[in-house]
Structures are given as structure tokens and as C-alpha cells.
């Protein structure tokens, strides 16, 4: 790809490459991404630095190729993966999922089930889906499009995805929380299992992130700034992966 102008990346585009980077070095695994920007991220990763990733068409096939978000998947079919096979792959472990939690606590416990009293929730969400099994079986990351104290809470109402403090015994063996990418920052986990501020996106201060987080986020030393997309990555995002700018609806500029 050629690029002749210096491009200025939007926040959504910074998030997209941060999501892509979460899959760096993953190799030949199923890369499952929920949300627009994570979907851009895994496709960008595969198209550029992580070519062995395997990606679903959203139904029951794994496809090669690179197709835009919000459009039907197009590419060579390389596998048939009905849900039953996906479940096998989940427990087998060759998968890295990026899910969208409604609540996350300081050790990466994640809730996608229900808000409020479990027996009579204030808000019923999807249900735990595969989060309990995912989080104790294979690498798990999260995407939070709106970083706020509503999402980052001191205690989640229902633990669907298992956090570091609760992963003990057989739940620990393959438990592997990787990153939380948000519209403000990238988080990873400190040695004690607590969520740690890994980088802040350009234009965001550490204090802003701390103020939008409902528990003490671990901060170690100087916090770096999240990287910008390269010009080639920007061109790929804008012209191929998301020509309709759906990413801006998820993270407005």
C-alpha cells in the first residue's frame, strides 16, 4: 500500500489497532471478536502481522480473506464450525476471545448476565453465554467502548467471566486474562492479578482514566501512550475494513 499524506488517527482507529495488538503473537488460534472495533482489530491483525489467525463468518464457517465490518463475510471457506465444534475449540483452548462486558471489577471479573439483584434484576442482559467456560479455558480479553464508573465497578453483580482472584484450582489451569481495551486506555494485569493501566490513548490523561474507573487501578511508573496506527494500517481501516466508518458510532471522535 502507498500513502502520500500524513493521516491523523481518530480515537476509534487508535482503539482498533489496540484491539489488533491484543492478538499479536497468538498464531494459529480462533480469534473471536465482539463489537465493531474488535472485529476491525482481528481482521487488521490477520491482514498484517498475524496471518495465521482463524476468523468466523459469524455463522458456522471459518473464512480466509479480509472483508469489511457490517457487510456479509466473503472469503475462502477453510473450516466448518457449527456451535458444537466451537464449543470443542473453546474447551480445547486454541481461541482468544474479546467480549464486551457490562461490568468489570479490579481483578477482571466480568458481567454480561444481569444488573442488580440476581433474583429480580434491574436490567436483564444476555445471560452468561460462554463467558464462564471461555474465561477458564483460553485467552480472554475485553472491549469496553465507553470507559466509565458504570462499567468499571468495585464489585460486579454477577460473575460470568472469571477474574484472576476467583480463578483457583481447576479454574486456574487454563485461565488467561490478557487485556482490556477501552475508548480511553489499554489495561492489562499486574503480577497480583489486579487490572493495571498499560497505556493511555493519545489525548487522554492518567487522571481521566482513574476518574472513570470505580476502583483503584494499578499504576506502575510512567504510563506510556498507546501507539498510533501506521499510515498503512489507517488506509486498511478506512478503505477496506470499515469504509462506512461504523467504528465512529462505537467510539465517536
Amino acid at each position: 500500500m502507498t500513502s502520500t499524506v500524513t493521516k491523523t488517527a481518530t480515537r476509534a482507529e487508535v482503539c482498533a489497532v489496540a484491539c489488533a495488538d491484543a492478538f499479536r503473537g497468538n498464531g494459529e488460534v480462533l480469534a473471536s471478536a465482539f463489537g465493531t472495533i474488535p472485529a476491525i482489530g482481528v481482521r487488521l491483525a490477520r491482514h498484517t502481522f498475524e496471518p495465521d489467525l482463524m476468523i468466523s463468518d459469524g455463522e458456522a464457517q471459518l473464512l480466509r480473506g479480509t472483508w469489511p465490518v457490517g457487510a456479509p463475510a466473503v472469503g475462502e471457506v477453510e473450516a466448518w464450525v457449527p456451535f458444537r465444534t466451537i464449543f470443542d475449540l473453546v474447551w480445547h483452548g486454541k481461541r482468544h476471545v474479546m467480549m464486551i462486558p457490562s461490568q468489570v471489577d479490579g481483578f477482571g471479573n466480568a458481567n454480561i448476565s444481569a444488573i442488580g439483584d440476581y433474583h429480580r434484576p434491574k436490567v436483564q442482559l444476555l445471560g452468561v453465554r460462554g463467558a464462564p467456560g471461555n474465561s477458564v479455558s483460553h485467552p480472554t480479553s475485553y472491549w469496553v467502548p465507553k470507559h466509565s464508573v458504570r462499567v468499571f465497578v468495585s464489585k460486579v453483580d454477577m460473575v460470568a467471566g472469571v477474574g484472576n482472584d476467583r480463578a483457583v484450582g481447576a479454574a486456574r489451569r487454563y485461565h488467561d486474562l490478557r487485556r482490556v481495551v477501552t475508548n480511553l486506555a489499554v489495561l492489562d494485569y499486574a503480577d497480583d492479578g489486579s487490572l493495571r493501566l498499560a497505556s493511555v490513548h493519545p489525548g487522554v490523561t492518567v487522571d481521566e482514566v482513574l476518574a472513570a474507573t470505580g476502583f483503584p487501578l494499578t499504576v506502575e511508573g510512567d504510563v506510556p501512550t498507546s501507539r498510533l496506527p501506521t499510515d498503512d494500517e489507517l488506509q486498511l481501516i478506512r478503505e477496506v475494513l470499515d469504509p462506512d466508518s461504523l467504528r465512529d458510532r462505537e467510539v465517536p471522535s
Binding site: 440476581y118 452468561v128 467456560g133 460473575v159 460470568a160 472469571v162 476467583r166 479454574a171 489451569r173
Partner: peptide, 13 residues
């Protein structure tokens, strides 16, 4: 037997 559910509130509820 399975690992899925261990550590989560699926076992709590």
C-alpha cells in the same frame, strides 16, 4: 465433568 462454570457465579446461583 467440566471446568466451565468454576469460579463464576453460575455455581453461586
Amino acid at each position: 465433568p467440566t471446568r466451565a462454570g468454576l469460579g463464576s457465579d453460575v455455581v453461586t446461583y
